[in-house]
Design a protein around this nucleic acid. Structure first.
Lengths: 228, 228
DNA sequence: CAAATATAATAGTAATACTAACATATTCCC
DNA sequence: GGGAATATGTTAGTATTACTATTATATTTG
């Protein structure tokens, strides 16, 4: 339990939070607090109080709260990538791998005992609610230059590769994958807050809802590439 | 020229900006400035300077800059809805209407002489860059209660209606429409800032790019509902 | 044990997102 | 034409945020 770590882009932090206890507390409490308060209400001052430290100490790990959000989403994409590898390792046909990818994307996210200090359920809610805030900023191009979106790109490329194997002539594999990666989260958001924009059923228990989501995303992917 | 107006939800503003000159200047300069600066860098103080007025005067029209963004996106959805009606009025088959809807969604947005005080090109860029900020907030549920997302819902429902006519058995018409409404903008954003996440070609001139976007969205919609 | 390193403590700044209170200008209508 | 209402302007102020600088104190390490 808690024996794995991801090597994330060094530009994501000032000092690697995995290397010290304070750093780990910043990450795990940071997840808790962003999940609880929402990103705009979350501040390093409040976080400092929760980890029994001070604002300047936190700034020694992350340039600002925005970079912390980047770090968390990058971690999330690495985690999905890892889960994708686990789910596809034993599979052979690209179509099976594609189907497994969609399952990984849409399945309910449960806390993974392989990673301490990270509450994946809370982290997934953060991704659903805040992901877009990592790139809808005036720094997108600089952040992209720095490689901060590498995790998202890696995952997109991997799934896109399966699509290319299944349907080599489909002209929009990357667009399709980036669309479903976002849509899966958007639909969960709409389900919660703007239910008329979705056909997922809030009254169903979580596993069924995620099954519906999976069917929806499959209808997009396999429909677009014409394999039913 | 400039002879049409939309009746927007009264909760979007404190005082109707269409009713006075200052109000109209706030809207048109607001569009210009949010487009130029980005939403976070845009402030009522800066806007006040541009319209030769003062912060408190602007607060008499909009509760805060967030509500102004709501107002602008609501206007945008009303405008698309209006263009959708124009584009489908003469059509008869639901499939044609659906195809026309996708064209309206994906086509290049040009300034519409029917509406003064609104630069639709700039407004579309704002929607591409800032739309999500209207709902990814702690006020979503209150804002939804107040009906601020009515425009988006109306448009979704209308297009969803076409889908239901074409494919009565497809279980996710609303999800499909909300997904493509967002995806069309996301892909334009990625094209500009994270091109590896898209297959649209930045080197192509705008009309062809929008044609590609249209083909991509058609592949999603007609693929999902199984009509090619 | 000294030196390096990490953290804490304190204080301060510019900008933001407002709000209050009051003055003035304009228009509406009797 | 005069008074009332309405819209706008003026000035000033507040709490919070997102930092930064400086100095002091632990703690680890070689």
């Amino acid at each position: 339990m808690g024996h794995l770590t991801f090597k994330l882009n060094e530009k994501l932090y000032v000092r690697d939070p995995q290397s010290t206890e304070l750093g780990q507390k910043i990450v795990s409490k940071g997840i808790e607090m962003i999940d609880g308060l929402g990103f705009e209400q979350f501040t390093f001052k409040k976080l400092a109080a929760q980890v029994n430290s001070t604002e300047p100490s936190i700034y020694r790990y992350f340039e600002n709260k925005h970079r912390l959000l980047h770090y968390l989403t990058a971690w999330y994409w690495s985690w999905l990538d890892y889960r994708l590898d686990l789910a596809t390792a034993s599979l052979h046909s690209p179509e099976e791998k594609l189907r497994a990818s969609i399952r990984v994307i849409t399945e309910e996210k449960k806390t993974d005992p392989s990673f301490q200090h990270v509450n994946e359920e809370a982290l997934h809610r953060i991704v659903v609610n805040e992901l877009e805030k990592t790139y809808l900023t005036k720094w997108v191009d600089d952040d992209n230059q720095a490689g901060l979106f590498g995790g998202f790109k890696t995952l997109t490329k991997k799934i896109s590769g399966f699509i290319k194997e299944v349907a080599p002539d489909y002209p929009f594999p990357n667009s399709l994958v980036s669309t479903i990666l976002l849509a899966a989260n958007e639909q969960l958001f709409f389900l919660e807050h703007l239910p008329t924009l979705s056909n997922l059923d809030k009254r169903l228990p979580a596993p069924q809802r995620h099954a519906q989501l999976q069917v929806f995303i499959e209808s997009l992917v396999f429909g677009a590439i014409q394999k039913k």
